[in-house]
Computed example of a mutant assay.
Amino acid sequence: MSVSALGTVLGIWAHPDDEVYLSAGLMATARDAGQRVACVTATLGEHGTGDPARWPPARLAAVRAHELRASLAVLGVTEHHVLGLPDGGCAEQPADAVVARLAAIVDDVRPDTIVTFGPDGVTGHADHQAVSRWATAAHARAAPAARLLHPVLTHEFLARWQAVYDRLDVFLADGLPHAVPAAALSLHVPFDDALADRKLVALRAQATQTSGLVALLGEQTMRDWCATESFVDAARESTRTWGSWRPDVRRVPDFAAWDHQC
C-alpha cells in the first residue's frame, strides 16, 4: 500500500509533537499529492517540561500551540482541531463525551484513513492510550468503512537504533517497546533526503520539546532516526492489555520536555 491509496487522512493524537514524530512523512507525502489531511490534538501538552517554574502551564500551552501550527505548516497541513483536554488527564475524561466530539470531526472530514496510536500508545503514556480508545470508538461510530492505521516500530528498526533508545527514557510501561516484523506492515513511508530534512524542520519547529534532544543526539542522528514511519491496520494489532504511565511528582523522565515523544 502507498500513501496515495490512503485518500483523505485524519490523524488523531494526544499532544503536540505526537503527530510529527509518528506521521510527518505520511502527512507531507499526502499533501504533496493533493490529498486532504486533517489533524486532531487532544491536549496542548501544558505539563511537558522539566522546568515548570520557567514554563508554567498556561505559558507552555500557548507556546506549544504556536509551535504546532508552525510544524504542521512545514508539512502543508492547515486543517487542525484542538480538543483542549488536560495534559496528563485524558484517561479521566468522560469517554462518551470525547468520542462524540471526535465522531463529529470524523463526520465533517469524512476520512478514508484515520491514523492514531495503537492500544499500547507507542510509549505507554496513558494519554496516548486514551486517545487510541477514543479514536477507535469514533471510527466505529462515524466512519467504520475507513482504514484505521496504527504507527508501529519494527524489529529491524529497533535493532538499528538500540544505542539511541539505551540513552533515552522513551518506553514508559512494562512490555514495551512493542515491535512487529517488517513483513507485517501495511504501510511503510519511503523517505528521501528532502523528506527527511523536512521532517527535521517540522520537529525543530516544536523547540520546547525537541531542542534538548537534537542537542543530545546531534542533528544528523536525529534526522536519520526519525526518517522512518511504519503502520499496520488496526485489525492486525495486538488486543492485549498494556500498562500505562502518567506524569506525576514522583517520576519525571530524563527528558521531561520530551515526555510525549514517539
Rank of each mutant, 00 (worst) to 15 (best):
230 S>T: 12
203 L>P: 02
116 T>P: 05
108 D>N: 13
153 L>W: 15
130 A>T: 08
10 L>V: 00
175 G>W: 09
220 Q>D: 15
16 P>T: 05
134 W>D: 12
10 L>R: 04
143 A>Q: 06
16 P>Y: 02
122 V>M: 08
144 P>N: 12
104 A>W: 01
171 F>Y: 12
188 H>L: 10
71 S>P: 05
214 V>D: 10
168 L>R: 07
208 T>P: 04
57 P>A: 13
64 R>P: 09
56 P>G: 08
155 H>P: 01
86 P>A: 10
232 V>N: 05
67 E>T: 10
25 G>H: 04
8 T>P: 06
124 G>D: 11
214 V>Y: 09
195 L>A: 10
119 P>H: 07
180 V>G: 03
143 A>N: 07
32 D>G: 15
133 R>E: 12
181 P>Q: 10
36 R>Q: 11
147 R>H: 09
199 K>T: 05
182 A>S: 13
23 S>T: 07
247 P>M: 01
150 H>L: 08
67 E>R: 10
13 W>F: 13
199 K>N: 06
170 V>T: 12
205 A>K: 02
184 A>T: 10
257 A>R: 12
164 V>Y: 07
108 D>R: 15
186 S>K: 02
53 A>C: 08
16 P>L: 02
161 W>I: 01
206 Q>G: 10
177 P>E: 02
216 L>S: 11
25 G>N: 01
244 S>V: 03
193 D>N: 11
246 R>N: 08
23 S>R: 02
203 L>I: 11
209 Q>V: 13
17 D>R: 07
130 A>H: 01
221 T>P: 01
81 H>V: 13
87 D>K: 02
96 D>S: 10
74 V>E: 14
36 R>C: 06
228 T>R: 15
23 S>Q: 07
188 H>Q: 15
247 P>N: 01
13 W>C: 06
85 L>Q: 06
230 S>H: 12
71 S>E: 08
5 A>I: 08
213 L>A: 14
252 V>R: 04
133 R>P: 03
147 R>Y: 02
22 L>H: 04
196 A>C: 10
254 D>K: 00
36 R>G: 06
51 D>Y: 05
189 V>M: 08
239 T>E: 14
200 L>W: 00
38 A>D: 11
38 A>V: 07
239 T>Y: 04
113 T>Y: 09
104 A>N: 11
6 L>T: 04
133 R>L: 14
35 Q>V: 00
111 P>R: 07
189 V>H: 06
156 E>P: 00
152 V>K: 02
35 Q>G: 10
221 T>W: 07
237 E>L: 14
189 V>D: 06
213 L>F: 12
233 D>W: 05
135 A>K: 02
67 E>D: 09
215 A>Q: 15
223 R>D: 09
37 V>L: 07
117 F>W: 12
